[in-house]
């Protein structure tokens, strides 16, 4: 502070910080941290009740002998999901967003600090049940897995184009209820592909453990691969 600056005179300071860039920078930093520790991370997105927790339990059951898994469960409140996933015998960290409708890079970074990343090779993150807002908040994972269930009706893919375009793998869950809901699973899968050409689409009935192996293959975690799904596109 020079004397030339009179104490009460305002001074203009250029800041020029782009908040949306900061959002993706935070995500990139998480990804770097995960890569440095050899952890493959999956962000699981879907509406409330679409079956995220059920599906994660299924994935954990099928994969825990081959991978050292940890789960982060994001919810507005409660640790019900964390308790459900813990039944599968893997460490679960519950994040309570306290009202926020999405996880963001900052919240996830703090969660990563509390995990022993060196002892983990697969991290599954259950995002908050919402298909709009998480689309604007990448959290820094290798794969974004989008869960649609037939009980949400036939228009979920076309109504959420932003999210569908960002997903790497889409799951159509609750296939067992398709007839009762009068939803055509093939049509819904086509909708997903027309919004996002090239996306992998898998049909499951997570509650009955159906389609989990197909999903594991689509995620590149089927074990025929040399890595935990991160290094090659097999």
């Amino acid at each position: 502070m020079t004397d030339a600056n009179a104490p009460d005179q305002g001074r203009d300071i250029i800041i020029d910080v782009d908040l949306s860039k900061r959002t993706s920078e935070l995500a990139d930093r998480n990804l770097d941290l995960l890569d440095a520790h050899g952890v493959t991370a999956i962000d699981v997105l879907g509406s409330v009740g679409s079956g995220k927790t059920t599906l994660i339990k299924g994935l954990v059951r099928h994969l825990k002998d081959r991978y050292s898994i940890a789960v982060i469960a994001g919810d507005i409140t409660t640790r019900i999901d964390a308790d459900r996933i813990e039944e599968e015998g893997v460490p679960v960290l519950q994040i309570q967003t306290g009202g926020a409708c999405h996880l963001d890079g900052e919240i996830v970074r703090r969660a990563l600090e509390r995990l022993d990343l060196d002892s983990i090779d697969l991290l599954i993150i259950e995002n908050v049940g919402n298909l709009i807002c998480p689309a604007a908040f990448p959290i820094g994972t290798h794969t974004r897995l989008l869960l649609l269930s037939v009980t949400e009706g036939p228009y979920m893919a076309v109504k959420h184009p932003v999210m569908v375009r960002q997903a790497d793998v889409a799951v159509i869950n609750k296939a067992d209820l398709a007839d009762a809901m009068e939803v055509d699973v093939a049509k819904l899968s086509d909708d997903v592909r027309s919004v996002h050409p090239g996306i992998k689409v898998v049909t499951t009935a997570a509650r009955f453990d159906e389609g989990i192996d197909d999903l594991i293959e689509a995620l590149g975690l089927s074990g025929d691969c040399c890595c935990a799904g991160g290094c090659c596109d097999a």
């Binding site: 250029i14 020029d16 910080v17």
Partner: peptide, 10 residues
Amino acid sequence: ACVVRSMRIT
């Protein structure tokens, strides 16, 4: 984008 451009301080 949402950019914080500048501020005036005392």
